[in-house]
């Protein structure tokens, strides 16, 4: 560990740049699925444990389309559309029935969905890890010490475009406004003529589509496997807990923060602890929240 710290700050400070860049690439992907989770959580009070499995499912859809020889931008659009339809279907099948139930029902139902998705993906694609190799090469800087794969740059750009579209959509479109209204007060929204059932369905489908987009990016920059979904679920939960619900800039900055924290943890403590890093953040945030809430708690007079 001491060696690693020395390496980072004394022997080869330039690799900090590599770690930071990797953290940013990672964060961009996390931001998408975390924002989807925040939406569903904030609007419908559903904690979707199948979030990561949606990501992996998007990745496998992308993989299938890639084998058909479809170019990447088109893959992204098709996967987003397919996942949107899939999300709408899941809403009608499962989520609609649990939306008014208590928290444990939603946790159980989405956990079951998560297991089902894993096994179905395993059945269709097998347990081997797979990846889309874009064969795009990498840009090398500082005497090969820092290498930036073009596929990661591309995924960052795509993530930025998607996020921009989401922001505009939520602010400007009729549906975006309806979603925000429903999140604030579903009853008032219903009084004002908003079909909240449709808003819920749309929100859940929108979340699935965002996860699908994240999955496409994951499959081109890392590897996917039917059972890898859980790590994306954990990261999404950590980010949303840290950022709060319904706060897009907060989610994005928390995503980058966790991405960086993860990479630095991996660098200093070893790759095995990378996955533990977001969980540690989750714990720390919960503890701090607890303490600050205690301070504000006052006896009723």
């Amino acid at each position: 560990m001491l060696d690693n710290l020395q390496l980072l700050f004394v022997w080869a400070p330039i690799i900090n740049l590599q770690v930071i860049l990797d953290g940013i690439f990672v964060g961009a992907v996390f931001a998408l699925s975390a924002y989807g989770l925040a939406l569903v959580w904030g609007v419908m009070n559903i904690k979707n444990l199948a979030q990561g499995d949606f990501v992996i499912m998007g990745g496998y859809l992308a993989l299938s389309l890639h084998y058909l020889g479809i170019p990447l931008p088109l893959i992204l659009i098709i996967v987003v559309a397919l996942m949107f339809v899939f999300g709408w279907g899941i809403y009608i099948l499962i989520i609609r029935r649990i939306i008014d139930q208590d928290m444990f029902v939603s946790l159980l139902a989405t956990f079951g969905l998560s297991l089902l998705l894993q096994q179905v993906l395993n059945l269709f694609y097998g347990p081997e890890v797979q990846t889309i190799d874009m064969k795009m090469g990498a840009y090398d800087a500082f005497d090969y010490m820092v290498s930036i794969p073009y596929s990661k740059v591309l995924s960052l750009i795509l993530a930025a475009i998607i996020t921009f579209c989401v922001v505009v959509f939520m602010k400007r479109s009729r549906m975006g406004q309806a979603i925000r209204a429903t999140a604030q007060d579903p009853r008032a929204a219903r009084v004002l003529g908003i079909d909240t059932d449709r808003v819920y369905a749309f929100t859940f489908a929108f979340n699935a589509a965002l996860c699908g987009a994240a999955g496409v990016l994951v499959s081109i920059i890392w590897v996917i496997q039917p059972f890898y979904g859980i790590t994306y679920s954990v990261r999404s939960f950590a980010i949303v807990t840290a950022a709060g619900l319904g706060n897009l800039p907060g989610v994005i900055s928390a995503a980058f923060g966790i991405g960086l924290f993860e990479k630095y943890t991996g660098m200093i403590l070893g790759t095995a602890y990378e996955v533990a890093a977001p969980v540690a953040i989750l714990l720390i945030v919960l503890i701090i929240r607890q303490i600050s809430m205690k301070r504000n708690r006052q006896p009723v007079r």
Partner: peptide, 9 residues
């Protein structure tokens, strides 16, 4: 799914 930190070292 990602061992880039190890490989950076």
């Amino acid at each position: 799914s990602d061992m880039s930190t190890t490989l950076t070292k």
